[in-house]
Design a protein around this nucleic acid. Structure first.
Length: 237
DNA sequence: AAAGGAACCAACCGCTGCTAG
DNA sequence: TCTAGCAGCGGTTGGTTCCTT
């Protein structure tokens, strides 16, 4: 069954080697009509003597219309280095962060530009890891700060609703004592409790429910004492 | 100008995981 | 539950182009 051998050979009825313009045209036409996927069907019905794997590879790596041509930019190179430091040789994962670039392209680029540089690349990778960790820490701190601010706003809203609750006086006192470590915080809360006038019991008790969750989820560092306002960091969802 | 090596890139291979029967 | 078929992934190969001597 095998035909002639060599580059561009036919083996077991399938052609191998470089694709011709005619084959590309057939594949593009077929995918345009029927969409990609079902690569064995493509191979069978598009009039190509290529197996499904070969068709898929040609489409994904070369014919796809959204592919970006041209050299890898320094910015893309940095992204590759960063992501390789994070994920290793997970080329397809890395490629997802570089629109228009294929895993094969990134893999080839890495091999030619960084693999041989060994030490330099690994040093860069180490630096990248350190930088990524630092960025993650900063991001976490930022998120915590934002959450803290949001929680203060939420607390204020809840307190304003409390004002109109038929149990407001009792609950207010409970809240002040529960969530305040210092006399300053107690003053702040008391003033907040007395300043707003809105009513929505659903929101109110929903919010208090979340506050209870926050309280329950509080980590060990906070668990030893009453939670101060800034410690109410857990999200309201 | 020619030869040799390096770099680049398209394509293949083997393996893995998923899914339908 | 098992199995076959398939898609996708990472590693590798080999042809071509570019650069250096």
């Amino acid at each position: 069954m095998a035909g002639y051998l060599g580059w561009g050979m036919i083996e077991e009825g399938w052609r191998k080697g470089p694709w011709t313009a005619e084959e590309d045209k057939l594949l593009i036409e077929y995918v345009g009509l029927h969409g990609d996927g079902r690569w064995n069907s493509v191979a069978r019905f598009a009039g190509l003597r290529r197996n499904g794997k070969s068709c898929r590879l040609r489409w994904v790596n070369y014919l796809r219309p959204d592919l970006k041509r041209g050299q890898i930019t320094p910015h893309e190179e940095n992204i590759i280095l960063e992501l390789h430091a994070r994920w290793g040789n997970r080329w397809s994962t890395i490629a997802q962060s570089l629109p228009g670039r294929t895993d094969n392209e990134i893999k080839n680029y890495w091999r030619t530009h960084f693999k041989k540089k060994g030490k330099a690349a690994s040093e860069h990778a180490e630096k990248s890891k350190t930088r990524i960790l630092r960025q993650q820490q900063l991001q976490l701190q930022k998120q915590q700060l934002q959450q803290q601010q949001q929680n203060q706003i939420d607390m204020k809203n809840i307190m304003s609703l409390l004002d109109e609750s038929e149990h407001r006086a009792q609950v207010r006192q409970e809240m002040v004592s529960m969530y305040s470590n210092s006399s300053e915080e107690q003053c702040l809360l008391s003033s907040m409790l007395n300043s707003e006038e809105t009513l929505n019991d659903d929101i109110l008790w929903g919010g208090l429910w979340n506050l209870d969750d926050n309280h329950a989820n509080m980590d060990a560092t906070c668990a030893t004492s009453k939670p101060s306002l800034p410690s109410l960091l857990t999200p309201f969802y």
